[in-house]
């Protein structure tokens, strides 16, 4: 794709803020995209550098740069923790608006609708807190769901809720359902003592190492999988964790009123239904646990995990016959 002329009128108003970024890089540790992709250009600092370069006319926008700018889950870990107070996501949103206006085709972390699968049932529309989804008329008889690419925050609640599985998101940063399934499977198969799988919201901090690995010392009976929001934890993900051999599943989300996307309310409803289903199958509903943690409550999370592992050890593994019933085997 050839370079397009972009009027950076919205982005330019942030030049002073971009100067305030002293490029310390402390935001790396907090960025889920950096942890997945490991390129500095995926970090909040990297994105700010790219925007600065474009408005200072040092680099010309191209598809590679645009793709980076449109990759962000808006978890705001960076802006909430930036000691220089740079409103990273606000700068990013304005840069996105400038690039969209110039006609760039973008994907990034924004959701995509497969029109062949979408029945335009509209379930997703009221789910989106950012009003990024709407029903549009294509012609007199046909309608479609349209995604506002500037407003979409990539939280993925609509992906988890779509009954036709018509909504999808970028692969490669462990957020899609197949990727999460794979992660659960790897954890359980790699570590034989693995009893508990924890789906931990990226918005609340989680304990343990962030950017390094230690293959020699991991002996924990639990594995943490970071999801973009507890609202993204689809029921089949939990059921499959049991199928793979987990003794229990904990979903750790932000407390009510604190979730940016209102995803936690959906999780709560979903988990009540799932627990009822377990009861029907003669499996202890206590094998699913929902806990709320605010940002910075990693010590509380650690304690909750320790206690829950003890509970699970008392319960023991799920009997195989019940799991087969559960997944239809």
């Amino acid at each position: 794709m050839t370079a397009k002329k972009v009027d950076f009128k919205r982005s330019k108003k942030w030049e002073q803020e971009l100067n305030k970024c002293i490029r310390c890089g402390y935001c790396y540790e907090l960025c889920p995209l950096f942890k997945s992709y490991t390129w500095e250009s995926d970090t909040p600092r990297g994105k700010l550098i790219l925007i600065y370069g474009m408005i200072a006319d040092e680099i010309k926008p191209n598809q590679e740069i645009v793709d980076k700018i449109f990759q962000c889950f808006y978890c705001k870990n960076c802006s909430d923790n930036c000691s220089a107070g740079v409103p990273v996501t606000e700068v990013l949103t304005d840069a996105r608006a400038d690039l969209i206006e110039a006609g760039y085709d973008v994907k990034g972390t924004i959701v995509e609708i497969d029109e062949n699968l979408c029945s335009v049932c509209g379930v997703c529309v009221p789910l989106c807190k950012y009003e990024a989804l709407s029903i549009k008329d294509i012609n007199k008889d046909q309608k479609k769901i349209e995604v506002d690419k500037i407003e979409c925050r990539g939280c993925g609640l609509c992906v988890a809720a779509c009954p036709s599985e018509a909504i999808s998101q970028i692969e490669g940063c462990d957020i899609t359902l197949p990727e999460l399934h794979e992660k659960v499977k790897t954890l359980i198969q790699t570590y034989e003592d693995m009893k508990l799988i924890i789906f931990c919201c990226n918005w609340s901090l989680f304990p343990g190492m962030q950017l390094s690995e230690s293959p020699t010392i991991i002996k924990a009976p639990y594995g943490i999988i970071v999801t973009m929001c507890s609202g993204r934890v689809a029921p089949e993900l939990i059921l499959n964790a049991f199928h793979e051999g987990a003794w229990g599943v904990m979903v750790a989300g932000c407390p009510p009123e604190e979730c940016d996307h209102d995803g936690n309310y959906k999780t709560r409803r979903r988990l009540v239904l799932l627990k009822n289903m377990l009861k029907e199958l003669n499996i202890e509903p206590e094998r699913i646990k929902l806990e709320w943690f605010s940002t910075g409550e990693s010590a509380k999370l650690k304690n909750a995990i320790t206690e829950y592992v003890k509970e699970l050890e008392k319960m023991g593994p799920i009997k195989k016959i019940e799991i087969q019933k559960m997944v239809g085997g």
């Binding site: 490029r23 490991t38 390129w39 500095e40 550098i49 790219l50 191209n62």
Partner: peptide, 27 residues
């Protein structure tokens, strides 16, 4: 590795006042 402009430009600086473009980033 990467030789696309997005990566080269980001890796051209650190927390200092300086900036110079590399030709390729290798990991």
């Amino acid at each position: 590795y990467s030789d696309n402009i997005a990566d080269l430009y980001v890796y051209s600086s650190d927390a200092s006042v300086h900036q110079a473009m590399p030709a390729v980033i290798v990991k």
